[in-house]
Design a binder for these strands. Structure first.
Length: 272
DNA sequence: AATCGTTCCTGATAGC
DNA sequence: TGCTATCAGGAACGAT
């Protein structure tokens, strides 16, 4: 699942490999991926254009064009973006192929077809993007800011961390991993967390995201970086997908339970 | 306003 | 072996 560290890794890869290359062909293999737009219209917008910049906001990847417009991607569960050079074989679940005049291409793939791309004049046109909470690695995201956003919330802390309007970019993996690193039980009501616990959680979120970016993301499921290669943060997971195994910190068995419809992993020994 | 269940999709896997 | 049922999950949506 592409979460903040995975999207950031892809963003960096595309920044170095796809920037300033001229688009001269487009193949849309799955029309649903460009909801509401015809491939002919999209091609008219893209033909002869270059990508000038790749930005990220939460889990959104924004590709700016030299026309002033932008493509806004959301990879959801299994979406991926890969740069390929002449002769590389297409990924299995290829959905959109942006061909470059030099023979290379940028391929959007998506096994489960939840992901999508939209063309906008301004990213402000994307309502969900406007509603996003703060960037967890940004300067404005302080422990006090997090405490403020959790104030009065009675829901369990873990599903709140998945709420993109609370903080942008965390998904199931990093919500579970951050809570383990902060030694907090995912089922605790958010409003019941003490100031020191929120501080620990804030620190844990930033740490785990930075570590995961350094490891080029977690390759569970179909995630690959912009070159089609695996990340390696999954080998450092302490609870995610480790049910029945021993907690690396206290030796107790890692549990898995469904919380608000999402698999939740934690160690009952050291997360209180 | 906040919370919570349902829905989209498809490959992997369990069960018979 | 081969079939069917179940499950996973990000986020939009609707109901309460």
């Amino acid at each position: 699942m592409p979460e903040l560290p995975e999207v950031e890794t892809v963003r960096r890869d595309l920044s170095s490999a796809a920037r300033n290359r001229t688009i001269d062909s487009l193949r849309v293999l799955d029309g649903r991926a460009i909801a509401g737009l015809s491939s002919a219209k999209l091609f008219r917008e893209l033909k002869g254009r270059k990508f000038t910049d790749f930005r990220r906001r939460g889990k959104y990847l924004i590709a700016d064009l030299d026309s002033g417009r932008s493509l806004v991607f959301h990879l959801k569960m299994t979406g991926g973006l890969q740069i390929q050079e002449y002769g590389d074989s297409l990924p299995r679940a290829a959905r959109i192929i942006f061909g470059f005049s030099d023979g290379g291409r940028l391929v959007f793939s998506d096994q489960r077809r939840f992901g999508s791309v939209q063309l906008v004049d301004d990213v402000k046109e994307v309502p969900a993007l406007n509603r996003l909470g703060p960037e967890p690695l940004g300067r404005s995201f302080t422990a006090a800011e997090l405490a403020d956003r959790l104030k009065g919330r009675t829901a369990p802390i873990k599903p709140l961390l998945l709420d993109q309007t609370v903080v942008a970019g965390l998904g199931n993996i990093y919500a579970c991993e951050a809570l383990h690193r902060a030694s907090i039980d995912p089922r605790r009501p958010a409003s019941g967390l003490k100031a020191a616990e929120v501080k620990r959680l804030h620190r844990a979120i930033r740490r785990v995201l930075n570590q995961a970016i350094r490891a080029r993301g977690s390759s569970v499921d179909t995630y690959r970086d912009g070159w089609g290669k695996n990340g390696w943060f999954q080998v450092q997971h302490r609870v995610y997908d480790r049910q029945g195994k021993r907690c690396r910190r206290c030796g107790c068995l890692v549990k898995r339970e469904t919380l608000r419809g999402r698999g939740t992993y934690w160690c009952a020994g050291c997360q209180r």
